[in-house]
Design a protein around this nucleic acid. Sequence first.
DNA 1: TATTTTCTTCATCTATTTTTCACAATGTAG
DNA 2: CTACATTGTGAAAAATAGATGAAGAAAATA
Lengths: 223, 223
Amino acid sequence: MKVLIVEDENSIREVETAYLSHAGFDTVEAKDGKEALEIFPKHKFDLVILDINLPEINGIAVCKKIRETSNVPIIMVTARVEDIDELVGFECGADDYVKKPFTPSVLIARVKALLKRISGSKLENKYISIDPEKMTITIADQILEVTTTEFNILYTLMKSPGKVFTRYEIIDRAYDNSFDTDILDRTVDVHVKNLRKKLNVTKDLPEFVITVIGKGYKFNDSL
Amino acid sequence: MKVLIVEDENSIREVETAYLSHAGFDTVEAKDGKEALEIFPKHKFDLVILDINLPEINGIAVCKKIRETSNVPIIMVTARVEDIDELVGFECGADDYVKKPFTPSVLIARVKALLKRISGSKLENKYISIDPEKMTITIADQILEVTTTEFNILYTLMKSPGKVFTRYEIIDRAYDNSFDTDILDRTVDVHVKNLRKKLNVTKDLPEFVITVIGKGYKFNDSL
DNA sequence: TATTTTCTTCATCTATTTTTCACAATGTAG
DNA sequence: CTACATTGTGAAAAATAGATGAAGAAAATA
């Protein structure tokens, strides 16, 4: 788990880094908005912690800029409560707000909570919506009934649209860490077949699960 | 996997070497920047760990010098957080930064993470972009459909632009380590032919895969 | 325990890819 | 320029990979 910490005050930034590292996160620091935007595309961050009052480019602008290319979870940090009030009304795309001063444990708690929230959150596009909490798949206003395995496979693929998963990767992720699975990779084919049949509720639907011959499957990322 | 460790303090260098060796890496040590630049071209390193504060030639200069001839992954190490801040903004070409003091396990984790990140990362230039994760090739905003073998061949060549690969080297690398392949080398010609046809999406494109008569093929490195 | 549902395996069919081959085209050395 | 070697190419054959239906095993439910 990689976190980008954007904060101009050295002391605060170091504390944030120290605690997040200690909590097992990989951290990268940026001391102003310009630097943050330079660093951001060079890594694959799972979360961004962003101070609002930054020199040069302020946090809100950084947040909007990041949102142009990424849905990475963002936590905004500020000393002024008024900022938070404004921000919440004012759509900047952040996922959570934390008020300074905060204790490190509060920050860690918020980070973990956000990651958990995001990781289990709905995924949707124009055609399909999938809700892991309710374990439902909705297409064209129809709620589909799929099995747990089918759901997990679709959810795995859909979390990273376009990324090609091998059959073994799919087994690893869609089955609850059951490491000793000596399941044949061909089993995935059968689940995909059944899933496709269920997803195909109306005509004119695009192909959701795409076969990548010689590799595995991916979720259609051109939707 | 061969790692070059550049660090002037004996005790730290020894610890780094010990842990990396234990983790299965082949290590070579250099105790200053001058030595590093002498040793570097003599081996084929998969990664470089580079201290910033070195006598004579500092780490940043070493990094830039290495970058003139190689894209080897580089991890910069420093005791001063300010260094990292500066560096990240300041393009020196390193791929990751680690703050001293670090525990050995942190170093190993970063090394592994970096190698993983690099190994599966996108390659691109002005004309073409190739994404191993999505297994896609993009030219002039068009996503091409190529087979697994074609993709692997292009990816192999593109990872080392300008380097000439014999047909057998291509077979070795583009096929999943299936050593006992008794495939004719001319098969590569056919794949290259088909690949070229697919890459040729618009006019005015440069030649991507170049024939080196009597040797093999290389990726055009003048793009 | 009986019943139902889900999961896995297997055999078969179909689609796609990979390889080979023969010949054309091109490059190279004398 | 000729003769030889190497590469390009289209098409057929061979090999591989994926889709599918069905059946038994396993798991969940009643």
